[in-house]
Design a protein around this nucleic acid. Structure first.
Lengths: 250, 250
DNA sequence: CCGGGTGAATTGGTCATACCAAATTGGTAG
DNA sequence: CTACCAATTTGGTATGACCAATTCACCCGG
């Protein structure tokens, strides 16, 4: 069942700015970017990379193992390390990792993420409304209350916002769905905090969340989807403004 | 031998049954599964794991780095390695990795993957039909022809099938979308080969692919979406039959 | 000048050892 | 019982060495 006390290895913040070890991955990433390496190109050998970044070979291999599982590179035994067409075959987790490393998304990536997020969350609302269970609604209410408390306390409700959206996806009963959407929220975590730094946004967002909760609780897929659509419109306009600002040179 | 130029770093097969190194990851995964470890539980130390699996500590650390980026475990410096709630927070790539290791998806995962794949590909068809570019259609035709040749040669057109679906997603112009769908095709690669081992399926699939191509070329989102819907119905029924067969004990 | 073959250098894969700093643990003194 | 301290454990990291397969360069023969 649900362990009430026990450990509290809280699901709070998994990682915002990872430890220093991650910096090696970031250095490798910026290395390929700075060198203008294209898919198929070969990277320096492990020994050379170790020397270049002043770290041990083991650390390099660890970073390379990560980049390999993210389909950014390919390691050919006794041959070398080669760059893969990351744009097409790279893992979605590669973007999550970049975001955690503080590397901002490109304009194209932002537009694409926004578009896909809308598709995913709109459909998630339909499924959630069709399959709503009492415990799911209770979970949503719980998060809603926690958000109220956070706002009242003057805290940044960014994490509660993410928790609500993820709980909505969880209400679809589709855990694979949850994994995918979770990636999107991880990659925009920092930006979300900035978004809610403007205190006027939280109350509006909260009201829309409540409308979404009610639509799901009522088992109305159309209304639920529409509510999410309107909610996302606000977030998306923020992103578009941000892109314009960035295009003008901040 | 016969390849004249350098290498043909072709986009052929990236990895089906990875090398032996991957087996350590598989061993670690089966270890946590066999030990019935729950989220929050601590794994044995790196030194202990190295001894248990008769490998060096470096190899263990490399595997752990991968499991960490996939959000399966969490490494706390000077403390230990802890299991994370993989079901909820795990990366979608974790499922891809498991599939590559030969670990079959659970029944729930199959149903969830099928459901999400339908959502993604249906919406992808709409976007593809709205934005179709000449080069996208040309790319589709290219793959269609290659599929014809493969079928005529008696080869298994599993990879061409995946290429077609991925090209369709690519036609949306959304590379993030492509990354997500790509994960789904990677995790079902082996099963797809079995699916097309029945020679009668390829021609029907090919016909449906052509209908989808035409609908997209005509810029008709509704027809394109409907064509994909019908196409997926066939694939999904195969999966459902497979689950029933598995439930009865093969 | 070209083609092929051979040996050396390179490279990823792996293991063993050692050291560090922080976290953990255990026991002891107050 | 609490507070504090020392030994142990643990992840993080660097170094060195060896293996096998791949590459590459050089040389020889045609």
């Amino acid at each position: 069942m649900t362990n009430s006390p026990g450990r509290q290895s809280g699901p709070s913040e998994p990682s915002a700015i990872p430890d220093e070890r991650a910096s090696l991955i970031g250095q490798l990433l910026s290395f390929v970017a700075h060198r203008r390496l294209e898919p198929g190109d070969r990277l320096p050998s492990e020994r050379e990379l170790a020397e270049r970044f002043a770290v041990g070979r083991g650390a390099v291999r660890e970073a390379l193992a990560v980049l390999e599982t993210l389909r950014i590179i390919e390691r050919r035994p006794n041959s070398g390390i080669y760059l893969r067409p990351v744009e097409k075959q790279g893992s979605i987790e590669a973007i999550v990792l970049q975001a955690e490393l503080g590397i901002p998304l490109t304009e194209a990536e932002v537009r694409e993420v926004v578009e896909l997020r809308r598709i995913l969350e709109m459909q998630a609302m339909r499924l959630a409304a069709e399959r709503r269970h009492v415990e799911d609604i209770a979970h949503l209410d719980e998060i809603l209350d926690a958000t109220d408390r956070a706002i009242a306390a003057g805290e940044n409700p960014a994490d509660q916002d993410a928790a609500f959206h993820l709980a909505m996806v969880e209400a679809t009963g589709n855990h694979v769905f949850l994994r995918v959407v979770n990636a999107f929220y991880l990659m925009s975590r920092n930006r979300r905090r900035v978004y809610f730094a403007d205190g006027t946004r939280a109350p509006l967002s909260q009201a829309q969340h409540r409308a979404m909760r009610d639509a799901v609780a009522a088992g109305d897929p159309d209304r639920a989807e529409a509510a999410m659509g309107g909610h996302l419109r606000g977030v998306e306009s923020y992103w578009m403004e941000l892109l314009e600002r960035r295009a003008r040179g901040d």
